[in-house]
Design a protein around this nucleic acid. Structure first.
Lengths: 196, 196
DNA sequence: TCCTTCATGACACGACGTGTCATCACAATA
DNA sequence: TATTGTGATGACACGTCGTGTCATGAAGGA
């Protein structure tokens, strides 16, 4: 028999989500989370750098993104590649877990400290994309803009996708929403007086 | 004679910047800042919600942005308006204070907690712009994308502007860098396969 | 059997941030 | 001149966050 119950990290995460939904993020203390998970406060901080991280650790989105950029098909222009990778993320990471995503997003929306951490995760994603395009030979300005564009499109599309009131089954596929938002971006930037 | 020395808030801000430059952000304690400013810890937290805010309070960038959007000339299309307002901000807020801006940016770049707060400020700016364009009748998706675009362009241009090694006098005008980055955005989104 | 590894527990501690009450210059008013 | 109110600050207590450090004991290999 094992000395400790398995998946301490997962237990802490689930206990935290439950408690945050019951009482809100701020009033929930780390000792409370640890106790519900059957662990100590010190152990909590061994698994998560701080109280906020417990909500985001599952993501692994930046790691996924780095892999997806490495596996990117060659020969596509920047925008086609962005579209291709965004649709892949939509289908593999988001499609099918709409209500779960919605749960976490609701928690984040309810607390400024969690919103800050969410922004940090988004910035990390933008940096992964920027660096990948810089490695592909894009000039630094374009690479930086593409990084921000990817994050912006993903986020705007996510909000729209989550806002649809219908059941998960009847909702618009996330990949289609991505296309819709990308088209809006293109229209926006195509207007006449772009350069000077 | 007055009971307290004037400008407590400003003294706290300056003491904090000095100490952060001398020792770094994390090792500097709030009591230390307060003492150098001739005040108590409790008074520090009356002026700033937390330790990070002491670096950002001067900005007032979102307030400026809201005003600039209210005063926006009519009849311009979205992109022309964005360019006009960004150039205004470049000239009124940034031009002429390059070294001062660089000082604060260096502090922010050196500490993750400050980067998070910086991202929060950027998000607040994006929200101001989004809401202004939504009020002007743009559809929600476009308005959200424009908010993010403004922040992205401003930030990319800022990095480029600060990176120039030359003296402040010889540096490219910030407004010109804005145009350069805007042009890169337009080129990026103009490529063929935008929509579907 | 011995030894190493590694996740966890136990404990102390400094720093952050807040609630609460006291203090006292300055202004307004009588 | 006397009184009263306002508002910024000080003083103090306190709960929570996050870290450093050492001890413990199961698992696994030699």
């Amino acid at each position: 028999m094992t000395r400790w119950a398995p998946d301490a990290r997962g237990r802490l995460h689930r206990a935290a989500v439950d408690l945050f939904e019951e009482q809100g993020y701020a009033p929930t203390t780390v000792p409370q989370i640890a106790e519900r998970a059957g662990l100590t406060t010190r152990t909590f901080f061994r698994h998560f750098a701080d109280k906020r991280e417990v909500l985001f650790s599952d993501d692994a989105i930046t790691a996924d993104a780095a892999r997806l950029m490495r596996e990117a098909p060659e020969g596509l222009d920047v925008l086609a590649l962005v579209r291709d990778r965004l649709r892949t993320v939509a289908e593999t990471t988001f499609e099918g877990s709409r209500s779960e995503v919605r749960r976490v997003r609701a928690l984040i929306a309810a607390d400024p400290a969690l919103q800050e951490r969410d922004l940090q995760k988004r910035a990390a994603l933008a940096e992964v994309v920027r660096s990948a395009f810089a490695d592909r030979g894009e000039d630094p300005i374009t690479a930086a803009l593409v990084g921000d564009l990817v994050v912006s499109v993903l986020h705007v599309a996510l909000e729209r996708w989550l806002d649809e009131p219908a059941d998960d089954a009847a909702a618009t596929p996330f990949a289609d929403v991505i296309d819709e938002v990308l088209a809006a971006s293109a229209t926006l930037l195509r207007s006449a007086t772009a350069g000077r």
